[in-house]
Design a protein around this nucleic acid. Sequence first.
DNA 1: TAATAAAACGGGAAATTTCCCCTTTCCGAA
DNA 2: TTCGGAAAGGGGAAATTTCCCGTTTTATTA
Lengths: 210, 210
Amino acid sequence: MKITIGIVDDHQLFLKSLGLMLESFNEFKVTLMAMNGNDLQEKISPQNYQDIILIDVNMPVMNGIETAKWLNKNYPLIKLVALSMNDTDRTIIEMIKAGCYAYLLKDCHPDELEKALHEIYTKGFYNSDVININYRRLLLAENDPLNISEKERIFLEYACSDMTYKQIAAEMKLSERTIDGYRENLFHKFKVRSRVGLALEAIRKNIVKL
Amino acid sequence: MKITIGIVDDHQLFLKSLGLMLESFNEFKVTLMAMNGNDLQEKISPQNYQDIILIDVNMPVMNGIETAKWLNKNYPLIKLVALSMNDTDRTIIEMIKAGCYAYLLKDCHPDELEKALHEIYTKGFYNSDVININYRRLLLAENDPLNISEKERIFLEYACSDMTYKQIAAEMKLSERTIDGYRENLFHKFKVRSRVGLALEAIRKNIVKL
DNA sequence: TAATAAAACGGGAAATTTCCCCTTTCCGAA
DNA sequence: TTCGGAAAGGGGAAATTTCCCGTTTTATTA
């Protein structure tokens, strides 16, 4: 009996070709491919069971974190593996908290992928050198108390634009005072004295994408 | 005789699995794989000739643009195709100027990739709907001259910081009015209404480095 | 050398940002 | 149910930004 694998990734080329590669390993059978979390929810069912599901971190529509959380809740027996582009990806820590057994970089060697999937299936975990290093670093980063709330994060996105605070308040359907509170908190957290400094820091810390 | 393909991409999983996929099309033979431009320079030779080379836009060490330029100069007969993650990639116009015959998004359908490669090999070009829309838009953006003077460029660097205009004026040893003139000119040139917008545009246009 | 354009500079006002101190509302734990 | 803390909202003032009206200085060229 082959190990059944599901893949969730919005990049079709990667999705299909990774599927081909996994099938070529002979040990695996790709039984589910989805473009994003929503797509997965429609395609997955107890009848179409996967041993392992590989989840891309960055996806439109329903991203990796939401997808991992949903799977962890509804299909807790499926072993989840996060796939990300770059090792500085802040969301990777969230992926692990969301129930992923491991994360792998997309530029890892195919042999490592095979080894990882095999170990996860048999032993239930996989520790690469990479993950140990990064996990520690990410936990450290986690520990520094930046602690941006979801509302603040959304506000940050708006702050990184040509809009005035008044316009942002209207857009977020909140009072200008509330917006001003977010601003003040973030100024302290980021140690900046102006909106420009805030915007630049948000981009540097990869909280807002340019 | 199969069409020989080279692939340059820093993501090993993508590199190897895309290779597998192309080979599965039967019409193609992947005869070169490289992790980046430098790697490619070492591996390529007139004896190991490629019909088409797929180049990832974003790579460390030696990026897609440099790689494309180098190939175009040293192996002008090889047809180059740019591969990028997202269609808002500003560097795509540079890739085409650097000699790429087409660009494809990594989330395109495998069938489109096959079609594109086939057409590029036989006809020498490929026009997807996507490329026509974006190419025009990008060329338009390219054509407006912008014309940033050296003083304005230096001011832009300062503007991308936590400093007030007064501090910037002191630092540049110029009157606040003069600074204000730079600001006003740049607002028009960048079509923005605030310093935040200006700073973000300067970074997007790669005039100021983050 | 005079004309001319561009760069530098200036005053002032309106809009926006930044900062401070405060009240109300909501929500979970005791 | 009440308490406490966090989130949301409020008023107002000083600082900064944005904008529009100019003049002076500098550099270029006819």
